[in-house]
Design a protein around this nucleic acid. Sequence first.
RNA 1: GUCCCUGUAGUUCAAUGGAUAGAACGAAAGCCUUCUAAGCUUUAGAUCUAGGUUCGAUUCCUAGCGGGGACACCA
Length: 567
Amino acid sequence: MNLNAKIKEQIVAILKKEQIKIKADDLEIPPSEEMGDFGLPLFNLSKELKKSPATVAKEIAAKLTVGELIAQVKAVGPYVNFTIDYEKAAQLTIAEILKQKNKYGQSKAGKAQRVMIEFSQPNTHKELHIGHLRNICIGAALVNLYRASGYKVIAANYIGDTGAHVAKTLWYLQNYVNQTDYPAGRRELGEFLGQSYTAAVKKIKENEAYQEQAQELLKKLESGDPELTKLWQQTRQWSLDLFNEVYQELGVEFDVVFYESEEEKQSSKMSALLLKYPFIKKSQGALIADLNEYNLGVLVLLRKDGTALYGIKDLPLAIKKFKKYKISRSIYLIDIRQSQYLKQIFKILQLMGFNKEMIHVPYEFVQLKSGIISSRSGNVITYEEVKEAALNKAIEETQKRHPLWSDIKIKEVSLKIVMAALRFGMLKNSNDKILTFDLESALDTAGFSGPYLQYTVARMNSVLKKAGKQKIKADYKKLQANAEKTLIKDLLAYPEILAAVISSNDPAALSQYLYKLAQDFNAFYHELPVLKAEPEIRSSRLLLLKSINQVINNGMELLGLPVLEEM
RNA sequence: GUCCCUGUAGUUCAAUGGAUAGAACGAAAGCCUUCUAAGCUUUAGAUCUAGGUUCGAUUCCUAGCGGGGACACCA
């Protein structure tokens, strides 16, 4: 049960006794703790009563009685403010957290609804760069968050293993690279392929004939040319191996993986099916969906040479998701630049009579200081580059701090620090903000960062370890300091943060919350002793600390940030 | 041209229409014989413009200005 909601309900009930009807949402949070913990503004009511808000506030406050979880009611200017009973709130919320452990904050709001979340969607034969990382981080977090809210989530990946980019890369390999030049090693092969794509694009720009050759190659590939297919399969695997290594490193798992090449097989059947609809037309030799009527422009489905474009592959996939996987909602986590495209796809499906809950969750793209990331132009920072740079720095720092640790341990811990830094960096801003990536701040472990959270947890663990077994019963009356009250309120707010994050499909608010919780803890830590406090206070503070530790752990896990015992 | 996102300290970001607009980085000054200084405490520093709605606007509406993006054969 969500205690914060319970407290608000209690305030609603207290007011109802005096014939004042409000909703829990009408309650606001006063700017400072001395004013109270929840406030009701009286501007509306005062207008009805034709009195000043302050007068109304005073009159109401005088009439109200306190409740089980409400210790005080008072008028503050035009507000009636309520102060929670911290002793009781602390007792209940700490007990709840320690009982629920890693389930604390979760809900059953999803009612076991089946939801598919498609994310990551990398292209084979291209580089995996930090732009892809934002999608993976948000996607993985959403999967966890939906699951924590009681949804049955199918995490899906859709890999672009065919199309023009593949043809260009293969064309380049065939014409400009000897097999003896292929590097050794899984990761190296994947990266080599990505570099080949960039080189291919550059080469093709030089001469129009090359463009035609690549186009010709695509046609051959689609028609199943054996030799080409062999090269395609071989190189495709290089990319897939690289992706899998990265997913493993990030701890990201998919329940199902779709491949564009598979969906492509449906494209002739799909186009035949589509032809009976009047909005599907032949135009300039191509097959298009004319959606001008809906202010959605035109989507080209087949090129004039008959080869398939992405739209014709997304359509059967969209249908398959519902039919085969029995989902009730289909979520697409895709860059905002594809908003129009997804609207087109959803519209076409709707016009085909396929009315299902399909949702595009957009997020703004990642750019570099040097401009937009583009594999085509080579303006790219790969995931691998960033990771290596960050890892080297983290290893150096960790060595400095822990000269006695083994190399293996240092590397293990450093990698987790790097993962937390990179992933938090991708999750700390809301989805609708363009993220300008720069290495400098990605490497920063101070301030609003993943390692800050890890450090805070490590600190708490250190105290808990030194504390040993607890003998004295906690007395929550003793948690009277402002720093402690703030922390109790933070803990109370956690379940509502999770709910908010789900409804916005944007994990940033959880990042913000965890950071604030850690910050409030660190302030407490510096101000008040735990281990050296008198026994009853010590016991209470230890339990408070344990609860904070649990909640930060829970939140970090949902965001996909690795936790460290020590750092 | 149509449509979408966005405009808040020097920089990167917060702020369910509400009380004194919060952080981080950077700048300046402090705090390790006391639970991990990857930390903490101070100080300075901001709502693009003009209207409108409202008791009340950073938030909603309109217009303008600025930044970014999408709009027929890339995904």
